[in-house]
Design a protein around this nucleic acid. Structure first.
Lengths: 172, 172
DNA sequence: ACCTGAACACCGTTCAAGT
DNA sequence: ACCTGAACACCGTTCAAGT
C-alpha cells in the first residue's frame, strides 16, 4: 500500500517502468550510410526490448512516454530524407520498421507455444496434410532462430527501401 | 451468470470470439504471380482485423485457435517456395509480413493519441526543436492515411523479397 | 513525509436452488 | 438442460490512524 504515496495508480507505476526502459536505450551514432544507421537503430531497439521481457506491452499500453520514444523516428526521418525520401514516405518507412521490430520481439518473448506453432499443430493432428501441404513440409518451429529471422526481415525491408530510392532517383 | 453453462471461463469466451473471426476470413485464390497472391492475402487479413477492432488483441492472447490461423502461413510458404525461396526464408518472410500487418492494424485501431503522436508532442512542447529537428519539420500525424501507409509497407517488403529472389537466381 | 491496516468497490467464479 | 441469486476470492484503491 505504501507505493500509493509515490504513484497515484497502478497504471502510472507501470507507465513509469516503461518510461525508464525507453530512456535507457542508447542508439548508435547516425553517421554513415542510411542503411547502416537504420540497421543499428532498430537492432538497438530490439536488444533493449529483449533485455526487458514484457516491456513491449507496457510501452504499447502507456498513455504518455518520455520524448525519448521519438528517437528512432527522428533518426529514421533524418537519414531517409537525406537519402531522397519525402517526409511522408520516410514516416511510412519508420512505421514499417517499428511494427516489424516490436512485433518480432513480442513473438519471441511471448513464445508461440499457444497454438500458433505449426509444429505442435501438426503433432496434435490439428492440421491436415490436404489443406496445409506446405506447412507439413516446413516442419516444426522448435529451435527457431529469432536473431536470424529478425536480420532477414530487416535486410528485406532495407532492400525494398533501396529499390524505392533508386526508382525515384531514376525518374528525376 | 448464465454463460457459465456454455463456456467454462471468460478467457474461453474471448478465445471463442477470436476463433470465429479467424475462421470467417476468406483469402483470395492463390493463382497468379507470387507478389499478387501475397498482396491479396495480407490485404484480406488486414481488412478482416480492421472490421473487428479489438480482434487483434484477442487473437494474440488466445491459447488455441482453429487451424484456419495457418492459412496465410500456408499461402505464403506455397508461393514463395515456388518462387525459389528456401522453406526457412519463406517462413521468415511470412513472419515479416504478419508482424507488419498486425502491427499496423493495432496502431490504427488503438489510435496514437497516447503520447506517441509527434504532432501532439510538438504542440504540448514536450519535444525540443534542437533534439528533434526532422520531427518538427515532418509536422502532425492528424489525418494520417493508414491505407496508404500499409500499401507502402507491403510494397516495400515485396520489393525487398524480389531483390532477394533475383539475387539468389543470379548465383545459380 | 512516509507507512500501515482495515474497509470498499469491482469482477471472475462457484454453487445451491430454481424452472 | 438452462437460468438465477447469493456468496466467495481476488485486486485496485481509499482513508483514517500511526510514526
Amino acid at each position: 500500500m505504501a507505493v500509493y504515496n509515490h504513484v497515484s495508480s497502478k497504471s502510472e507505476l507501470l507507465q513509469g517502468i516503461a518510461a525508464v526502459v525507453v530512456e535507457q536505450i542508447r542508439y548508435p551514432t547516425r553517421k554513415g550510410a542510411w542503411r547502416k544507421v537504420i540497421r543499428g537503430c532498430f537492432r538497438a531497439l530490439r536488444r533493449a526490448c529483449l533485455a526487458h521481457p514484457g516491456a513491449v506491452r507496457l510501452i504499447e499500453s502507456a498513455e504518455m512516454l518520455p520524448s525519448a520514444v521519438f528517437q528512432p523516428m527522428e533518426i529514421t526521418l533524418t537519414v531517409l530524407q537525406r537519402a531522397g525520401f519525402s517526409s511522408v514516405d520516410a514516416l511510412r518507412a519508420y512505421f514499417l520498421l517499428t511494427t516489424f521490430t516490436l512485433g518480432q520481439v513480442s513473438n519471441q518473448t511471448k513464445g508461440w507455444g499457444r497454438g500458433v506453432d505449426p509444429g505442435t499443430a501438426i503433432m496434435t493432428g490439428r492440421i491436415s496434410q490436404k489443406r496445409f501441404p506446405a506447412l507439413m513440409q516446413a516442419g516444426t518451429l522448435a529451435g527457431w532462430d529469432f536473431d536470424k529471422s529478425f536480420e532477414f526481415g530487416l535486410s528485406t525491408i532495407l532492400l525494398g527501401l533501396e529499390a524505392r530510392a533508386t526508382a525515384t532517383r531514376a525518374t528525376r
